[in-house]
Design a protein around this nucleic acid. Structure first.
Length: 1049
DNA sequence: TACTGCGTAATTTTT
DNA sequence: TTACGCAGTA
């Protein structure tokens, strides 16, 4: 892994750099252009396509061409040059270099991203505000009712499909499909379907449903666009498409721009989408002085709308007269690395022989290594160990010479732990700070102030040392709140409670002081004060400032750009949606100017998470980032982590709502385009390395190496056999770590003991609640289920008894249970005595009472009688639920009408004990919805479900049903011959049975769970269910430990 | 060649 | 919760 000779290009960097990663080719002096580069730079008029492979000086050529044009084009002023790219940083970097090479005059050129260019263009006319994806989600969520969702509405989770809808709209913009055009497309289809029906070929229900679904897309797109326009909001996609519209509508403006921008240059052209492409053609006008630079192999952004084959299209379709220049002299990587990269490129559809990269480095460089590990833990340990070793041995000079790349952020966590253990400094690009303890403390504090009913957040706050509360008192308060069915806050405010608690007055004063402020003043006016006060709590640790600074910026931005009155309540609503939409707050880069008034608030973002001595500082930090994040960067030594099946390449996930082919501009996606894109991503990863490249993978029973590695190995074998093309084969050293090395073993041994992230105080307090008093354990079916899903959730809910407000879905369920009970009892009564089943039914309907029960007014009346709005916060959601309730009740009635039944019990409570082998027993509690008599002691149990329709399999496996059947036999002395799980959503009942073996198994499970509970075993079992868990604000599984610093630059 | 059932894992990001 | 890939079957 040691470079045989350390070829260093950065002669102007005598000292090791600290963290700062330069874009490639900075090192080349402007006069050092090779022949191809020079030809590209000195191209005259007309369209020019520069196909520039990785490390061939792409950006350098653009900047040089800007300089060349300024020097040579007669009468050309800087403002006549427009240089466009995609990332803000890339645009800034171009501008910086142009200034550096050609002086101040060059700064007069326009260096911009496509988005910024369009945004500015549109804002010249109307003041607009940009909406990112998350904010667009929130916008949709707030206007849910106006969108009139039907197919895409899930009542229990109204935001469920909003990302899909937002993505769909965005794809329309990318392809310049307007709401009208989409609607026309749908109506044309609808007409065709209708035509078929006329011809006596009924299209079937599927087609009708499909049309309805498409119409819903059209409606959402049209409505959301109208609403956004009304509020002067602009999504990313709309920036481009609206700019194109504006240019089309205003020939004068277009002419003006065409005259102004005599030369247009585009970097990373392979990432353009149809809309950007159209914009470019418009701006280029008749002069067509467009220079585009790109590399098909590095097109990795099709998932966000970039069209396929932009470079080919440029040449073949729109600018057939263009000149094509290929840059293939690579200044970055060793020959070994390029050989491996070539082996990958060769497999691409867009492969072109003339693009083959040729290294300018003189020696071969060291062999590329592929390491296979028995598990992911050892993989991370190895990488961390290897980096530490190379620094210690002097094989590498600085930590900042290392980069570790991964496909997705989540593969980073283990590595972070491993690096930290070895005290290797590292920096993470795009680090989200949302789940860091100080930020969570702050959010909990804001919620405790603004939402008195939020007991979970208050509990987190109360655990802070400042309030001098004992853990036992907190849990006593929680238990009391549950008993009184009130919030923790109400208990705390009760003057008769907590007399022995010294900090009580201080806490109440604190809460009421900020509550008053929060109702009267903008959040921003008192937020710094709160932050300062929290600093005094004694919880502050190193690095907290950095994270809290980023959160402060987030609040500032919200206040200045997104809020109306700026009050806390509005912020909490916004933030709740922000979290639900999956929003992340990232650390800002240190070289960015503070976007808002952070400095004026006395903030500092300079704090680092690592207290480094000056000596350590000079070694920089290992760079951790995703492969996407690494595009455009280069590093001396690159590790690529986790090259596994299903991890890299990932498995394909196509969008839920796709734009029809007929509306897709640009070439259609053909073949296995997902694998193609992943392969290009792999290519990008490989070509980041200058001297050493190490690929890591894992192989065991469940995990297998990536197919990309298989391909490399097969290629190598084939080449060795053929020996025809000495340079063609990838020379890779395949290594396998079968037995962990001693340092790795040591580290793994340490893992359990050291891995104690600085969780919030409440985590320690929860430990005090470990064991409930022995011998008095009571379990319900839901308690049992909860423990099995996540023991920690059980602890919060049943042991600590933290009060939580029931979710709308739960409220609906309990209302429906009561309503169903009434309906069933009326139906049963109606059958027995066919007179007064319904007082509300009109007499005019006449006939027997059984029919009277079917009158819709009765359903309405029953539902109204049991409905309570308490707990529903969203009126639209409530009315949707009520609508569902009506349908479900009506459906049930209809279903029951056809099936006579003998009602024996309703809501029948039970209680019995399961004896433990030693010590006391466990008391089981529950209530059975309905018991019908079949014959004699034979009965049928019915359990109603209002949520997602359960399946036969779920009925067969349901613990709840087993428990009820057992109770039925043990307590009621009845024989449960049949158990029915009845779905009110589908009016489908699944019938199942339980036998002695099932009861035995259940009792065994109950004993096991009881033992674990009494032993205080409450590990958190994180999973998808965390999304819906009330205890997220205090759960350690949801809390990141502090991580590395943000990458500057 | 489809279908069905189970186990596993849930991207990447532009002002 | 859901959707995909893989293995086993009609």
């Amino acid at each position: 892994m040691v470079p045989k000779s350390s070829v260093r290009w950065e002669s102007n960097h005598a000292e090791p750099r600290t963290g700062m990663v330069e874009l490639n080719m900075v090192e080349l002096n402007k006069d050092q252009l090779n022949a191809e580069q020079r030809a590209a730079v000195e191209h005259g008029e007309g369209p020019l396509l520069i196909v520039a492979g990785a490390g061939t000086g792409k950006t350098h050529v653009i900047v040089e061409r800007v300089g060349y044009l300024l020097r040579t084009a007669p009468g050309l002023e800087p403002e006549n040059i427009l240089a466009l790219t995609f990332a803000r940083k890339a645009a800034e970097e171009m501008r910086r270099r142009a200034g550096e090479y050609f002086g101040e005059r060059a700064l007069g050129c326009r260096f911009s991203t496509f988005h910024a260019f369009c945004y500015d263009l549109l804002r010249e006319e109307i003041p607009l505000r940009a909406l990112d994806k998350i904010d667009q989600w929130i916008f949709f969520r707030r206007h849910l009712e106006e969108l009139e969702l039907d197919y895409y509405l899930k009542v229990s989770e109204p935001g469920r499909f909003l990302h899909d809808l937002v993505d769909f709209c965005s794809r329309c913009h990318d392809n310049l499909v307007s709401p009208v055009q989409y609607s026309q497309y749908v109506e044309k289809l609808a007409a065709e379907v209708a035509q078929l029906a006329k011809q006596g070929r009924p299209p079937g229900k599927d087609a009708e449903q499909e049309i309805a679904r498409l119409r819903e897309h059209a409606r959402v797109y049209e409505r959301s666009e109208t609403l956004q326009k009304q509020e002067y909001l602009l999504s990313f996609g709309a920036m481009i498409s609206m700019a194109v519209s504006r240019l089309n509508e205003s020939p004068q403006l277009l002419r003006q721009l065409q005259q102004r921008y005599a030369y247009i240059l585009v970097d990373e052209f392979q990432d353009t989408n149809a809309a950007q492409w159209e914009l470019l053609k418009l701006l280029a006008g008749k002069r067509r002085n467009v220079t585009v630079v790109g590399d098909d192999y590095q097109a990795i952004y099709r998932f966000r709308g970039a069209s396929d084959g932009s470079l080919e299209q440029f040449r073949k379709k729109d600018f057939p007269t263009c000149e094509r220049k290929v840059l293939n002299q690579n200044y970055r990587s060793t020959k070994s690395i390029l050989n491996v990269a070539h082996a990958v490129a060769r497999k691409l559809d867009s492969y072109k022989e003339d693009k083959r990269l040729v290294t300018k480095k003189k020696d071969q460089g060291c062999t590329v290594e592929v390491w296979e590990f028995p598990d992911a833990g050892q993989q991370s340990e190895f990488v961390a160990q290897e980096i530490a070793r190379q620094i210690q041995a002097g094989e590498a000079k600085a930590y900042s010479d290392f980069a570790v790349l991964y496909r997705a952020h989540r593969y980073r966590n283990r590595l972070v732990e491993a690096l930290r253990r070895r005290e290797v400094p590292f920096a993470i690009r795009n680090l989200a700070i949302d789940n860091l303890p100080p930020v969570r403390d702050m959010v909990a504090c804001l919620r405790a102030i603004g939402r008195p009913e939020d007991s979970v957040s208050l509990a987190r706050v109360l655990a802070g040392p400042r309030w001098e509360m004992e853990a036992s008192l907190l849990w006593e308060g929680c238990r009391l709140a549950r008993e009184r069915q009130c919030s923790l806050r109400e208990v705390v405010e009760d003057s008769g409670w907590g007399g022995q608690w010294p900090g009580k007055a201080k806490l109440l004063g604190f809460l009421s002081r900020y509550q008053k402020l929060s109702r009267e003043q903008r959040l921003l006016s008192w937020f710094p004060l709160l932050r300062q006060e929290l600093d005094l709590f004694g919880l502050k640790e190193e690095g907290d400032d950095t994270a809290l600074g980023a959160f402060t910026d987030f609040v500032i931005q919200w206040d200045q750009e997104k809020s109306t009155a700026g009050l806390l309540g509005e912020f909490l609503e916004y933030f709740g949606y922000f979290e639900e939409a999956g929003g992340r707050i990232s650390l800002p880069d240190e070289d960015d100017p503070a976007p808002t008034g952070a400095a004026s608030l006395g903030e500092s973002r300079q704090g680092t998470l690592w207290d480094q001595s000056a000596e350590a500082e000079s070694l920089g930090k290992v760079q951790l980032m995703t492969v996407h994040g690494a595009k455009g960067l280069e590093f001396e030594n690159v590790f690529v982590l986790h090259l596994l099946r299903r991890a890299f390449p990932t498995s394909n996930r196509r969008p839920l709502i796709s734009l029809p082919d007929a509306l897709w501009k640009g070439s259609l996606l053909e073949g296995d385009f997902h694998i193609e894109e992943e392969r290009r991503l792999f290519y990008v990863a490989l070509t980041r390395a200058r001297s050493t490249l190490t690929l890591c993978t894992v192989s065991n029973k469940r995990q297998q190496p990536s197919r990309f590695l298989d391909e490399l190995r097969n290629d190598q074998l084939r080449d060795e056999q053929l020996r025809e093309d000495k340079d063609g084969g990838s020379e890779i050293d395949w290594k396998k770590l079968s037995a962990p090395t001693e340092p790795v073993l040591q580290a793994l041994r340490q893992e359990d003991t050291i891995r104690q992230p600085p969780f919030s105080q409440i985590e320690r307090w929860t430990g005090a609640m470990a064991a409930p008093p022995a011998g008095s354990l009571t379990l319900s079916a839901s308690g049992l289920d909860t423990y099995r899903q996540c023991p920690r959730k059980y602890q919060y809910s049943y042991v600590c008894r933290l009060p939580v407000s029931p979710s709308p879905a739960l409220l609906f369920g309990s209302i429906m249970h009561r309503a169903v009970r009434e309906l069933v009892s009326r139906l049963a009564a109606g059958r027995d005595a066919s007179n007064d089943a319904s007082r509300n039914a009109s007499k005019k309907a006449g006939g027997d009472a059984g029919r009277e029960v079917q009158q819709p007014e009765t359903v309405e009346a029953i539902l109204d009688q049991h409905w309570s709005s308490a707990g529903f916060t969203d009126p639209h959601q409530e009315s949707k639920y009520k609508e569902m309730g009506r349908e479900q009740l009506a459906g049930l009635k209809k279903a029951l009408e056809g099936q006579p039944f003998q009602l024996l019990h309703q809501e029948k409570g039970f209680q019995f004990s399961v004896k433990a082998k030693q010590g006391g027993g466990t008391k089981l509690l529950g209530r059975i919805d309905q018991i019908n008599q079949l014959a004699g002691q034979d009965v049928e149990l019915i359990e109603y479900k209002t949520g997602r329709a359960q399946t036969q399999k779920e009925a067969d496996r349901s613990l709840q049903l087993t428990l009820y059947a057992l109770a039925c036999r043990e307590v009621l002395g009845l024989k449960p011959l049949s158990l029915v799980l009845y779905n009110l959503t589908t009016q489908e009942g699944f019938r199942t049975t339980r036998g002695p073996d099932d009861f035995k198994e259940l009792q065994g499970q109950i004993r096991q769970v009881s033992r674990d509970i009494l032993a205080g075993k409450f590990p958190a079992l994180p999973g998808y269910h965390c999304r819906y868990c009330d205890f997220r604000p205090i759960c350690p599984a949801y809390e990141d430990s502090r991580q590395g610093d943000a990458v500057p630059g």
